[in-house]
Nucleic acid binder design. Structure first.
Ligand SMILES: [Mn+2]
Ligand SMILES: [Mn+2]
Ligand SMILES: [Zn+2]
Ligand SMILES: [Zn+2]
Lengths: 144, 144
DNA sequence: TTTCCTCCTTAGAATCCTTCTAAATTGTTG
DNA sequence: CAACAATTTAGAAGGATTCTAAGGAGGAAA
C-alpha cells in the first residue's frame, strides 16, 4: 500500500526537476514549482500564480513570479499560450495540444492533440524553420 | 482606357464602405479607411497606423485610431491577429487565411488559405460555437 | 441653411500588464 | 565559515491600451 505523499516529498521532487533543468532550487522556485506541477495541468497568468502563492503562504514577489515563469518556459517546463492581446497565459501541459479560447470568459480549454488533424502545412520561408504550430479555436456563446 | 483613380474617388469609395458598415463617415474614419484599404492587404498595429496618418497629414488622435480599429473589427472590415502578448496586430485581409509569425522580427506573413489543410476539428463544447480557427506557425531563424 | 441632438473626437490622465533597477539576500563551493 | 555568483526584491519605469470629460462635427428636420 503506497504511502500518502508528504509535502516534503513534493519539495524533493520539485528540487530534482529544477536541478535537472539547470535551475538552482531556491525557496521561491521550489514553492512555485510545487504549485504549478502538483495536481492536474492547467492554464494560468502571472497574477494567478502570484495569488496562489500568497494563499499558500509562499512568500515571493511578483517580479520573481514573472522571472520564474519565463525561466520555466525556457527550460521547457511550461509553455506560453497566446489567447488575448495584453495578457500572457502559461500552460503546465507542455505536450503537443491545442486550445479552445472562450472569448467571453477569457478561459482556455485544452483540445487533445489528435482532435485536430492538420493534413498539410506550408514550407517555412527561406531562412526560417518552423518552431511550433499553434491552433486556437475561438469560441462564442451559442445562439448568437 | 480607364482613368487613373483620384483621391476623391477613394474617399467616396471609403465613405460607401463605412456607410454600408453602419459607421458615420467622419473625416477621421474616411482618412483611416483610405490608408487601410487602398493598396494591398497588410498587417499593422495601432501605432503603425497612427504614424501613417501623421505622414499622410491626416489629423487624428491615437485614441481615435484605437477606437476606429476596434469599430472596423466589429464591422468585419478588419480582423485582429494574435501573435505576441502585449501587442495587437490588425489584418486588412479578412478572408480566411493563416499566418507565419517571425519570432525574431515580430513580423506576420500570410499563408494562403489552401496551404493549411485542417482535416479534423473537435466539436465545440456545450453552449458554445466555433467562431474562428486561428493557425499561427511560429518561425525561428534557420540553423539554430 | 439653420437648428438641434446625437455621435464622435480629443488631450491627457489613468490603468493594466510586464520589465527594469540597484540593493539586499541566499545558495553553493571550497 | 568565507567568498562569490546567482537570485530576489520593492518600487520605479515602461509600453500598450483604455478612460474621462469637454468640445466639435454629421446629418435629420424644419
Ligand atoms: Mn513572455
Ligand atoms: Mn482589441
Ligand atoms: Zn493547454
Ligand atoms: Zn493576414
Amino acid at each position: 500500500m503506497p504511502k500518502r505523499r508528504l509535502d516534503n516529498d513534493f519539495a524533493l521532487k520539485a528540487q530534482d526537476r529544477l536541478r535537472a533543468a539547470g535551475l538552482r532550487p531556491t525557496r521561491q522556485r521550489v514553492g512555485l514549482a510545487q504549485l504549478l506541477f502538483n495536481g492536474p495541468c492547467r492554464h494560468l497568468t502571472a497574477e494567478d500564480l502570484f495569488a496562489e502563492a500568497a494563499a499558500a503562504e509562499i512568500s515571493v514577489s511578483l517580479a520573481t513570479v514573472y522571472n520564474t515563469l519565463h525561466q520555466f518556459v525556457e527550460a521547457g517546463l511550461l509553455r506560453e499560450v497566446l489567447a488575448e492581446p495584453g495578457r500572457a497565459y502559461f500552460d503546465t501541459d507542455v505536450s503537443n495540444h491545442h486550445h479552445f479560447f472562450h472569448a467571453d470568459t477569457g478561459m482556455l480549454q485544452d483540445i487533445p492533440e489528435d482532435a485536430v488533424v492538420i493534413a498539410a502545412l506550408p514550407a517555412a520561408p527561406e531562412g526560417a524553420r518552423i518552431g511550433r504550430v499553434e491552433v486556437v479555436i475561438r469560441l462564442e456563446k451559442a445562439g448568437a
